[in-house]
Nucleic acid binder design. Structure first.
Lengths: 338, 338
DNA sequence: CCTCGTCGTCGAAGCGCTTCGACGATCGGC
DNA sequence: GCCGATCGTCGAAGCGCTTCGACGACGAGG
C-alpha cells in the first residue's frame, strides 16, 4: 500500500503538498496538482483512514443504530437504512451499523473510541434511556422519531398527527361520518414509541374538529387480533363506513376478513392505510394510503447530521408533512347514507 | 477524552504498560494491572480507534456488503445482517455497512483505505465481477452464496440442492408421486444468483432418483404470476398432489388461489415451502417448510472471517444442511390415490 | 555463589496523515 | 520602482497508540 510519502516522492513534492492537493485547503498550482494527481492514480494511493482520523479528528463515518430484532416493520427499517447509507455516501461518509440492543454502552463505545463523527438512531422510545447518554457525547446525533424530552437533539420524523388529520379529512370529504381506527398492536404502545400516540392524538383532535363519530382500538397481530379488533369497533359504533388502518401487518388479514364477511371495499367500507407505498399497492385492492416516507426521513437525517458536523444551524424538530395518495379503497358516500 | 498517557500517569506507569494491560501481550503483575484498570475506569478511557488502527494495522471492523434495494427478500437480508452484526460484536468487531451498488469500487475504497479487516458479501451472482477484485485485496473475504468460480475465497450458504432433495424425499415418503415446483421469479434466474439453479438441479436429480413425475416453473410476482404458474403446472402434469414452493412472495397468493379454487391444503394438495421459519408460520395454514437459516449462515460467515483473520484454516465451501420442519401443509396420501 | 532465564516494566520509534508556521516568489497599488 | 499582500510550497510537529529492544530484579540450577 503506497503512502502519502510515496506519492510525494513520485510527484517530486513534499507530503504536505499532496495533502493539500487532496483536501484543497491551500492553493496549489495547476501544474503541481496535475503531477500529484497523476502520481496518486499511478500508485493507486488511498489515504489510510486510521491515520487520517488520528490526524484530523474526523472519521467520515456515521453510526446508524437500528432495531435489528426480526420485527414487524422490517421493510420500513430497511428503507431507512438504505436511505441513510446512500445519503451518507453522497457526503463521502460511510455507515457503521449498530444494533439497538447494544444500548447506551454501544453508543458510548463507538463515540468515545472516536469511530464515528455523528450518530443516527431509530426506534426511539418515549423516555429513551439513550438520550441522556447522547447528550454527553461530543458527537452530534440525529433521531428518527420523536421522544419526549429531546431538547438539544435533532429529530426527524413523519408528522403522524398531521397524517391522522389528513386521513380523517379525506374520509370526511368523501362524506364519511362514522369511522374506526385500527391502531397498532398494544405491544407498540407498550414499547412507548411515540408515533402511535401522536397518530392517535391527531386522530381524536381531527375527529372532534370535524364532528365525526369515531372509535379507536389497538389491534393484536394475526387474524384473530384483527377479527376481535374489528368486532370491538363494530360493537362500539355501528354503521361504520370507513376505517383508518395504522397497522401494517393488520392490513392483509383485515382485507381477508372483510372479504370473508362480505363487506366490500370500497363499496361497503372505505379504507385509508398508513404504510409504505409498496405495501399499499401490494394488496389485492390498491389502498388509498398515507405514505411512510422512510427514504425522505433517512436522507433528511443524514443531511441534518452533516449540517451539525460543519456547524451549520439546524431545525431541531423536523416533522415531514404527510401525503395521501388516492387509490381504490375509498369511495364517496351517497348522501342517503350520511 | 483521556489518552493512554493520562491513564499511565494516573496509574503511575508508562504508556506501554497500559497498552500491555489492555492487550495482554506481555505479563503484567496483578497489582499493576489492578491500578491501571482502576485508572482506566476512573477516567473513562477508551482507546482511539484510529490511532489503534494506525499503530496495529487492525481496525476491528468488518465490511458487510448488502443488497439494499427494496427487494422481495428484505426479511431474509435483515436476518443476515442481524446475525452478522451480532456475531461480529461477539468477536469484538464492528460492522461497516456497504450497499451492493457501490460495486467493485466500494470494496476497493474501504479495503485500500484500511477501514476494515475483512469483508462479507451477500447476494453474489454467478459470474460476479467483484470476485476478481476481492482476490486482489489484502483483506480476506467471505461470501454468502456460491458463485461459479470462487477459488480461494470462502463461501457459506444453505445447501439448496440438498434442500430440494429433502423436500422431494419428504413428499415421496408421504406417498406423493406427482409434484410441481413453483420456482423463483424469472428475474431471479436472470440475476444469476446461483441458489435458484442449485435448487432446481437438486430437484431434478431427486425427481429422477425417486422416479417421480415432476414439473417445474418459475413464477412471476403477484397474484397473476401465481395463477399462471399454477395453470402451467397443472397443464403440464395432471393429478398434482403436491407442490414445492421455492418462492417466498408467491406463498401468500398461492394459498389464496388454492383456497379460492377449492383445493384444500393439505387435503387436496400438499405443500413444502422453502422460506424462513417465521414466514412459514405466519401463513393461514402452518406450512411444512425447509428453513433458510439466515442466522446460522450469517454467524458462520463471521466465524469464518475471524478464522481467516487469525490465520487459521477454513473450509472454503461450507454448505449448511437443510432441515425440514413438519407442520400442517403435508399429508400422507392414501394408497388409492397413488 | 554465580549464571542464566524469566518476569515486569520502561523508553523510544514509528504507523500515515494533517496542519501550522515559515519562506521565497510574484504581483498589484501608488 | 518599492512595499506589502498573496500565492505556492516545504518542513516539522504531533495526533494516540502498539511494539520492539533493553534492562533491572529475582528465582532456580549447577
Amino acid at each position: 500500500m503506497p503512502t502519502i510519502n510515496d506519492v510525494a516522492k513520485a510527484a517530486g513534492v513534499s507530503p504536505s503538498t499532496v495533502s493539500y492537493v487532496l483536501s484543497g485547503r491551500r492553493p496549489i498550482s495547476a501544474e503541481t496538482r496535475a503531477r500529484v494527481q497523476a502520481a496518486i492514480a499511478e500508485l493507486g494511493f488511498h489515504p489510510h483512514a486510521g491515520a487520517r482520523a488520528l490526524a484530523s479528528s474526523k472519521t467520515n463515518v456515521i453510526a446508524l443504530v437500528a432495531p435489528l430484532r426480526v420485527d414487524v416493520n422490517v421493510p420500513v427499517i430497511m428503507q431507512f437504512a438504505t436511505a441513510v447509507v446512500t445519503a451518507a455516501r453522497s457526503y463521502n461518509h460511510d455507515v457503521l451499523l449498530l444494533t439497538k440492543d447494544e444500548g447506551t454502552a454501544g453508543l458510548e463505545r463507538v463515540a468515545h473510541s472516536t469511530m464515528v463523527d455523528a450518530l443516527i438512531l431509530m426506534d426511539l422510545e418515549r423516555d429513551d434511556l439513550r438520550i441522556p447518554a447522547l447528550r454527553r457525547l461530543k458527537q452530534p446525533s440525529v433521531l428518527i422519531g420523536l421522544p419526549q424530552d429531546h431538547t438539544g437533539i435533532a429529530c426527524v420524523d413523519l408528522d403522524f398527527g398531521a397524517a391522522a388529520r389528513e386521513a380523517l379529512a379525506h374520509l370526511a370529504g368523501h362524506g364519511h361520518r362514522r369511522i374506526g381506527l385500527v391502531g397498532p398492536s398494544p405491544a407498540v404502545y407498550k414499547r412507548q414509541t411515540t408515533y402511535a400516540d401522536r397518530f392517535l392524538t391527531g386522530f381524536l383532535e381531527a375527529s372532534a374538529e370535524l364532528s365525526l363519530r369515531t372509535v379507536t382500538h389497538p389491534c393484536e397481530p394475526g387474524a384473530e387480533g384483527v377479527r376481535s379488533c374489528l368486532a370491538d369497533l363494530d360493537a362500539e359504533l355501528d354503521g361504520l363506513t370507513a376505517l383508518v388502518v395504522h397497522n401494517e401487518e393488520a392490513l392483509r388479514p383485515l382485507l381477508d376478513l372483510l372479504h370473508a364477511t362480505g363487506r366490500r371495499v370500497p363499496d361497503d367500507i372505505s379504507i385509508v392505510a398508513v404504510c409504505p407505498r409498496d405495501v399499499a399497492t401490494a394488496m389485492p385492492i390498491q389502498l388509498t394510503s398515507i405514505d411512510i416516507p422512510a427514504h425522505d426521513v433517512g436522507t433528511l437525517a443524514v443531511e441534518t447530521a452533516m449540517r451539525l458536523l460543519d456547524g451549520r444551524r439546524v431545525e431541531y424538530t423536523r416533522l415531514l408533512a404527510p401525503s395521501l395518495v388516492e387509490r381504490d379503497s375509498c369511495r364517496e358516500i351517497s348522501t342517503s347514507h350520511r
